[in-house]
Design a protein around this nucleic acid. Sequence first.
DNA 1: ATCAAATGGTTTCGTTATAAAACCAAATCA
DNA 2: TGATTTGGTTTTATAACGAAACCATTTGAT
Lengths: 152, 152
Amino acid sequence: MVARKSLSGNYCPSARSLDAIGDWWSLLIVRDAFDGLTRFGEFQRSLGIAKNILAQRLRTLVERGILTSVPAANGGAHQEYHLTDMGRDLFPVMVALRQWGERYLFEPGEPHSKLVDRDTGRPIRLDVRTDDGSAITADKALILKVPVTDED
Amino acid sequence: MVARKSLSGNYCPSARSLDAIGDWWSLLIVRDAFDGLTRFGEFQRSLGIAKNILAQRLRTLVERGILTSVPAANGGAHQEYHLTDMGRDLFPVMVALRQWGERYLFEPGEPHSKLVDRDTGRPIRLDVRTDDGSAITADKALILKVPVTDED
DNA sequence: ATCAAATGGTTTCGTTATAAAACCAAATCA
DNA sequence: TGATTTGGTTTTATAACGAAACCATTTGAT
């Protein structure tokens, strides 16, 4: 079998996450869902994705519990795709990606969308902290590996 | 051309980030780099990735400024791959992915690696906040779009 | 009520990316 | 000095992807 290697049995949570949402389109769909898009056509126009690929991605995102498809709220016959709690909890991932991109992938002065607090208008950021609230940098972090059994 | 659509001109920073590191292996390589791996063979054994794919990924990660390849520190002839500042700043992305995976992709009680403060041993987490430090949830966030010019 | 267009897909087909394996030169080890 | 490891590249088969055509059902206009 030459299928894309599955990481779902991996004991690293990042690896499993990438297994679930690490393909090319899934996170972009989730981003659009955060942006309020719900309909097939909305996603398609927003992303410029091929319809067959979009259909497949929506299907697997639903299968994995990140989106739900529900009959249209307005009585129409189409489906609407909404974030589940699991999907909404990808919010920090989105913010982290956004923050990195803002910093490294834009020229100084180049315009880009911004994420702000809906109520106060304040910019949103995120920081890594220990559970007592003190900020921490990458070099201070240590990955505790789970004891190896027999598979590598 | 049927190449994978480039999002590098997109005004959404998340989209550009995914364009840079959103392919299947890149973030896993970066994760391993955080874990201290530097050599071709180390990455290959750790990930089980095909060598040609790994070589290609390392090349583009270097091109994009996320890794640097430097001659071996110990005088050997091989290259070592190290995170740049740009690469190290992906740390919050890794933590966010990890945190989400821990929560949703493991059975209760199932073992997984953990991220802790090297000095204190305290678990590391991350939260989204406004710049004055108050925590915020996804529904309180608003994406301010950049004014559209002519391309869609 | 009827025709036209939009919506939400699925199917087909060509192209690209990926995986596996073979291969190879240089360095290291015994 | 011969064997093994390292760090790749090349080749080939398969799977994923993108574009376009197609289609049934809704929705909108006349």
